[in-house]
Design a protein around this nucleic acid. Structure first.
Lengths: 256, 256
DNA sequence: CGAATAGTTGACTAACGTCAATACTAGTGG
DNA sequence: CCACTAGTATTGACGTTAGTCAACTATTCG
């Protein structure tokens, strides 16, 4: 169950068997979540660190006018609120986008783990560095790209992040984002997202139906939106670790 | 010289006299910087942590098409690249926007300081939390606001951040951002920034001339763009600490 | 003083938002 | 199995916002 977490952190540092066991132990308290149910609400006291073990979630903030914006997509393996317990309350909400499983970690256990394992210490720092980098990239994406490449970039990023934790994206992958949610990710309106998705489909850049996304030619989509995965900093782990049991899972999910 | 740094960090944690001395010692190596000169270039090896002691800088990333976007404004007291040395290279550039002074800290000295002082440990974590929060707010600002309130929000934020480290904003403050730079902050074009600034001026919300910004009615400007300073998390320090020696500094910054 | 840089303005175009009607889909209960 | 419903997706007509191009003015600096 904690596989995604370990696969993700393995990109940030070499993890020994001990480190992996320690991580599994840390993320031992799991909880099922339902779509659209908030994991954390803005203003709530926060005493836990979350790890997304399965499914998607997002951080979002509300504007006075009732508008929303999704600032981060939280994918399997991602850690949320590493430092937030410092404030004592959440300055943004975290909402599940799919059915899923999260682990809750007592933040008091973390310093101990960090002290015992330099690998974990490094990996956790790397992870928050990655979060920052993704945020900055989103700022650029939303600020300096037209609608279609903007959406394409989100798709490329999600695909790369899923690939990095071992989801077999080559055969298509679950795409839970509704059009209004994608609008809140990209700072657009749902209607315009619809039109932009249509052009991506019409140009054969994506195949999206029944909440499944297939990118027939990843290079072409990346070229279309000038996506380069370097800002994700997925460079540390071995290729093995990045793409495990491809064929096994491919068979499983063959049907589109 | 390190006053801004200490004033800023004092918002994140209570700092003893010892802590302050330690911070001064950490930031002892200072360097003058010139406007538009990069402090760090994307791809460069990074072995230093920077602290902005005087003047403004920014982080920016370039797009293939030659477009730029400024992801962070770095104001006096701000720390840059706390964790980046983990990657070994810079994934974005840092460029000075004004003449100024930066301190360079050897990252190897930081763990020691953190171990010796819980106050500094907490303050540094708080600082990177604030950076994250500012990034998320920028995403919302640029994604869900029209041009004039978007710019107004940047002005409100800068004003609040300067106020928090003791710059006497009530009498007007130095505003080094050229219109094309403000365009890169907000994800707009310079022409449209110009028009939006004009409407802000025409509505009496700001007074901007000769690179000096005066906000005659901060509440009105904040209301105009629905700015609330809570995401900056400037809540820890005492009011004294936040607004020290108003007139003394007024003289000081007049020259900058 | 002239050259370079920054700011301003107008006319026009492209991108995106708004409103509203319609179609599709999945789940529900008869 | 068929309505019925609520949520989601799609499409068109139209309005608004922001971008583009280009001329012109103001400021700065050598």
């Amino acid at each position: 169950m904690q596989t995604y977490l370990i696969r993700k952190l393995a990109h940030g540092a070499a993890l020994s068997e001990n480190d992996r066991a320690l991580l599994k132990h840390l993320a031992r308290c799991t909880r099922n979540v339902e779509p659209h149910k908030p994991l954390v609400s803005e203003g709530d006291p926060v005493q836990r660190v979350f790890v997304m073990l399965r499914g998607w979630a997002c951080r979002l903030k509300l504007l006075p006018g009732g508008q929303r914006l999704i600032t981060d997509l939280i994918l399997p393996g991602d850690i949320s609120h590493v430092q937030t317990n410092l404030l004592g309350y959440a300055d943004h909400s975290v909402v599940a986008l799919t059915r899923g499983v999260v682990a809750e970690i007592d933040p008091l256990e973390i310093p101990d783990a960090i002290e015992r394992s330099p690998g974990i210490a490094r990996a956790v720092r790397w992870s928050s560095l990655q979060t920052d980098s993704i945020l900055r990239q989103a700022l650029i994406n939303n600020g300096r790209r037209l609608s279609a490449p903007r959406i394409a970039h989100v798709i490329c990023e999600v695909r790369a992040r899923l690939l990095a934790v071992g989801v077999p994206v080559e055969v298509g992958f679950a795409w839970p984002l509704k059009q209004d949610e994608l609008a809140d990710v990209t700072g657009m309106t749902a209607v315009h997202v619809n039109r932009s998705l249509k052009t991506l489909r019409d140009d054969g850049l994506i195949l999206l139906q029944q909440r499944r996304m297939l990118v027939p030619d990843a290079e072409r989509l990346a070229a279309f939106c000038a996506f380069t995965p370097d800002y994700l900093h997925f460079t540390y782990a071995s290729a093995d670790e990045r793409r495990p049991q491809l064929h096994a899972i491919a068979l499983e999910t063959e049907r589109l």
